[in-house]
Simulated assay, not measured.
Amino acid sequence: MSSAVSPAVICTVDTVLLTLQGGTLHVLLVRRDKAPYAGAWALPGGYIHAQDDVDAQASAARVLREKAGLQSPYLEQLATFSGLARDPRGWSLAVAYCALVPGEALQGIPPRQGVKLVPVDALPPLPFDHRAMVDAALARVRSKSLYSSLPVHLCGDAFTLPQLQVVYEAVLGEPLNKVSFRRKMDELDMLEPVPGLVQGGAHRPAQMYRLRPAFRKALALSSRAL
């Protein structure tokens, strides 16, 4: 029996943070300050701290706070990326997450050097397998958008139906018929009007809506379970 000690496995977390800017989906990138790929733009990621993090999701949340100064209301595990070829430092395993943050939530956060938002269709070359992680996040979010309230996490606390439709169109990457969209929202029965809250002028004010509490709770539980 061989007594050789196996090399340590590199264990990290990486997060695809999606947000809307100007009606377009953007991804948050950070500039790497260490090798490998020092100076390259990449997804916010870092090592799992076994002594501090209760699980991989806690690691992902911590890394987002440390690297970008952000706390995402929605954080869902995507997949595990592993193998010898993905990292020049050796055999590695990365647990990838998807975060959804409303654009308005980013406006009050002071800008950080080495952090930027990039449209999903204009990404620079990314190190490791970060492009595959972005593609996995986009596929997951677009798939869930066909039958769930997931895109609401890209909205603020309250929104009009036209504003929500813009969000769904940005996520799906295609225009939606107004009548069909509103029929789908009625079928899902996930929204409730915010009493006394409207937007617009006195002649044709638009009712503001929010996600029903049961749907907010269901989304929070599903994001923790995956």
Rank of each mutant, 00 (worst) to 15 (best):
P7H: 01
K67M: 13
A202H: 13
P195R: 07
V171M: 07
L100E: 04
V101W: 05
L106E: 07
F181N: 05
K184D: 14
H130E: 14
R62Y: 08
L161N: 05
A38Y: 01
D186Y: 11
R212H: 10
S222V: 07
S143L: 08
D189R: 11
D55V: 04
V5G: 05
L25F: 00
A56K: 01
S143D: 12
P124I: 04
L172Q: 08
S3R: 11
F181G: 08
M190A: 15
F181S: 10
V198P: 02
V5Y: 06
L211W: 01
A68I: 01
K67Y: 01
L176V: 03
R131C: 03
Q71H: 13
T15Q: 05
P195V: 02
D189H: 10
G69L: 11
D52S: 14
L154A: 01
T15L: 04
A56F: 13
D129Y: 11
S148W: 07
Y97N: 01
E187W: 12
G103D: 11
Q207A: 10
E169H: 09
E104D: 15
E66R: 15
V179T: 14
Q107D: 10
A225R: 13
R183Y: 11
V13Q: 03
E66C: 07
M185S: 09
D186C: 12
R112H: 00
S148T: 15
G45I: 02
P127G: 12
Q71I: 08
T19V: 02
V101F: 11
T24G: 02
S2F: 04
R224I: 07
D157V: 09
Y74P: 01
L93C: 13
G201T: 09
L20N: 05
A220Y: 04
G45D: 02
Y97I: 02
L106H: 03
